[in-house]
């Protein structure tokens, strides 16, 4: 699968992210890669999954991944459309939603996320879009999955700003903060899959995608990334998965 006609690292990341939704009933979807992966899951391993977008659409079944989270196709294909107040207060906050699907500009070893600024807050080097729905998705979904490209610019030793809390500063942090969801259970990158160590909550490389050397993943991480002793290789995308992905993106 490593020849030039095979799936790209980006495809592998999307497929791995979609697979993480197998067996889930409900997913709160961020825009971009999470939306593509969630719709791939709906077309493959999670056909009945209820996709919820922060624009207030519940049960959206878009024929193609939307450009924005407010595209007409999300509302037209939804089971219902609710106001912004309702989507956050009634649907997200009480912890009804199984999985939250997030991206980030920076992520640290405890899967805390920054989508606010690079550099100093008052005079930032890069002003990023900001929080959106992410802080409450990270707080209130039963669990979250994060999708990011694997570079030391994104997987950093220290966040410039904490926008959304993952596992805080380690064991017990979420409980102390009163965050009721379990937090990030998987970080999926274009090189592999990271999961929090059950004891320390620090992210550990548990799987590498086909053809990826775990040393490369370590080099491209901004902290000394631990590798699981029972590191596995991600199953390559199946023909059916790739066909479904092409159908969504072509």
């Amino acid at each position: 699968m490593n020849d030039r006609s095979g799936p790209s690292a980006e495809d592998m990341m999307t497929v791995a992210a979609a697979r993480a939704l197998a067996g889930k009933r409900t997913c709160f979807v961020g825009i971009g890669l999470p939306s593509l992966a969630a719709n791939l899951a709906r077309a493959t391993c999670a056909p009945g999954i209820v996709l919820i977008y922060e624009s207030g659409t519940i049960g959206s079944k878009p024929p193609r991944p939307p450009l924005s989270i407010g595209d007409g196709s999300l509302a037209e294909t939804a089971d219902t459309v609710v106001s912004s107040a309702e989507i956050f207060n009634y649907w997200l906050q009480p912890g009804r939603i199984d999985t939250g699907f997030l991206g980030a500009a920076q992520l640290d070893r405890y899967a805390n996320l920054n989508t606010t600024v690079i550099g100093d807050y008052a005079r930032p080097k890069v002003r990023l879009p900001g929080a959106g729905g992410a802080p409450e998705i990270a707080a209130s979904c039963k669990e979250t999955i994060v999708v990011v490209r694997h570079t030391p610019r994104i997987l950093v030793d220290r966040l410039d700003f904490t926008t959304s809390v993952g596992h805080g500063d380690g064991p017990g942090a979420r409980e102390r903060l009163g965050l009721r969801g379990a937090g990030p259970v998987k970080v999926i990158t274009d090189l592999g899959v990271l999961e929090p160590d059950p004891g320390t909550r620090e992210l550990v490389l548990v799987s590498v995608h086909p053809g990826v050397d775990p040393a490369e993943a370590r080099t491209r991480t901004g902290w000394p990334l631990r590798v699981a002793p029972d590191l596995t290789a991600t199953e390559p995308p199946t023909r059916a998965e790739l066909d479904a992905l092409r159908a969504l993106t072509s």
């Binding site: 956050f88 802080p135 707080a139 209130s140 926008t163 809390v165 009163g178």
Partner: peptide, 9 residues
Amino acid sequence: LRGYAGTDL
């Protein structure tokens, strides 16, 4: 609301 706990916001 439940929110913001632990964030720099």
